[in-house]
């Protein structure tokens, strides 16, 4: 007897590992990015040449801040998953591949967090 059920023991052992979840996350982030990036491009085009005060006012409006947060999460998640696929296709040494994947993940987390905190700072400090 074991604490683990037979299903739990084999889950993730196929050659795709947790590939289906990766695949779905890539498609769902892609789908959510369609409206989010269209909104973002239209907004940024309208903000061309905006000075400091008006840019902060735009970011600090709650609806914009909320949409920016959704955009940031979706973009960094999507980009991280995407770069992972590219790295797995072209980098063959296990060590180098692992290093690139770890750096990609770390960068996505750090950059995403920096962007999120900036939006939150502007939102709450006004």
């Amino acid at each position: 007897m074991s604490l683990r059920s037979p299903l739990g023991r084999v889950r993730g052992l196929g050659s795709a590992k947790e590939g289906v979840g990766h695949w779905w996350a890539q498609r769902l982030t892609a789908l959510s990015l369609v409206p989010l990036t269209l909104w973002f491009c239209a907004s940024v085009a309208g903000l061309a040449g905006a000075d400091y005060a008006s840019f902060r006012a735009w970011v600090g409006a709650p609806v914009n801040a909320g949409l920016l947060i959704l955009l940031i999460v979706a973009v960094f998640y999507h980009a991280m998953l995407g770069v992972q696929v590219v790295a797995e296709d072209y980098i063959h040494g296990e060590g180098r591949k692992l290093a690139v994947l770890l750096i990609t993940k770390a960068l996505a987390i750090v950059l995403g967090l920096a962007a999120l905190l900036s939006v939150l700072t502007i939102l709450f400090r006004g």
Binding site: Y52, R56, V75, A114, A115, L117, S118, V119, I122
Partner: peptide
């Protein structure tokens, strides 16, 4: 990187 720079700079 540019997007992050822009937001961090504004903050």
């Amino acid at each position: 990187f540019l997007l992050v720079w822009w937001l961090v700079a504004a903050a």
